[in-house]
């Protein structure tokens, strides 16, 4: 995803002189092409995230669309107040970019795990969250954000993720992208961010009718009203995320469905356990330890109750 990010950002920067990239002394082997091509629009702020975010807001107030890039927690929690006050409250076009969302930096340890970031960023009323599920969605998110500059958060996985779209899809905040249609009325597995590959794999592995698999790469506080109508005839909606349930995507969906008790009753959330990550593990291992498993999905399906009653 990070390679798709820099490729697309450079393409957009060619035609938009306002696009600037500020990094917090991270991005080795990723950001160099941008720095070489657009030296006047590339700034390494050093290991100083508060100043990085504040100056990004200052530049944005002068017309730039600033992409403030770092990894995992550093461009979010470390400078949360700058995002809240300087960027979101002033409604400035700064896109906070975090590479290594979820447990992508698994073996690096807890400091490098971004599993509470949705919870923080979705609290800001003017903040649009971009959580692409594959490299094509990364490009689509960037195209949308540059065309619609606003306070935003772009959560990237790391690298090597497969693409499920042939081309960058058209995006609209809050609108689901269907990757696998499933049967009419089939349960919907809705992923945000880097768990899309698990969703695609699991949907073929679970017993029963084929699931409908969707991705939601753009969402936020303003998009809740669009959720209920997209469930259609499905009796079960299962959200999937590599983030803690508290404050995360599943919680957001629960809030979005709060005025629709029947739909809310049919919603299940698969999210990371808060007890994960006390030991070394790669992303896949830690996701499993955290509860992102095929078994968890099976427990969420409607027939699970029937099966259990039959044993």
């Amino acid at each position: 995803m990070r390679n798709a990010f820099i490729d697309e950002l450079m393409a957009l920067a060619e035609s938009n002189p306002q696009v600037a990239l500020v990094v917090g002394d991270l991005g080795f082997s990723v950001v160099e092409p941008f720095a070489e091509r657009f030296p006047d629009r590339f700034i390494n702020a050093g290991v100083a995230e508060q100043n990085m975010m504040g100056l990004a807001a200052g530049m944005a107030s002068e017309g730039y669309h600033v992409f403030a890039y770092s990894i995992a927690n550093f461009p979010t929690f470390r400078c949360a107040e700058q995002i809240r006050n300087d960027v979101a409250y002033h409604q400035l076009p700064v896109t906070v970019v975090s590479v290594g969302g979820g447990l992508a930096y698994g073996a690096m340890g807890y400091s490098h795990h971004a599993v509470q970031d949705y919870g923080l960023l979705r609290l800001f009323p003017n903040m649009l969250i971009g959580a692409p599920g594959d490299p094509m969605e990364v490009r689509a998110c960037l195209r949308y954000l540059v065309a619609n500059p606003q306070p935003s958060y772009l959560r990237l996985a790391k690298n090597g993720e497969p693409s499920f779209h042939g081309t960058p899809p058209e995006l609209s905040p809050g609108a689901w992208l269907t990757l696998r249609p499933g049967l009419d009325g089939a349960p919907v597995l809705l992923s945000t961010g880097g768990t899309l590959s698990q969703a695609m794999a699991w949907s073929l592995a679970v017993p029963g009718p084929t699931l409908r698999v969707c991705s939601l790469p753009l969402w936020g506080m303003a998009c809740k009203g669009r959720q209920a109508s997209q469930i259609g005839s499905a009796e079960r909606l299962i959200t999937l995320e590599d983030h803690l349930h508290d404050g995360g995507f599943g919680s957001w969906m629960g809030e979005a469905l709060s005025e629709h008790p029947n739909l809310r009753a049919g919603h299940r959330a698969i999210a990371l356990s808060p007890e994960v990550c006390g030991m070394v593990g790669g992303q896949g291992t830690l996701n499993q330890w955290g509860g992102l498993t095929l078994e968890a999905l099976e427990r969420c399906l409607p027939q699970a109750k029937t099966r259990l009653e039959g044993t």
Partner: peptide, 24 residues
Amino acid sequence: VEFSTGSLGHGLSFGVGKALAAQR
């Protein structure tokens, strides 16, 4: 008024961004 503050320690970084924009 150019910028809202209240939390201390925000104004200078924001001004740095403005000055950087002018410089560039």
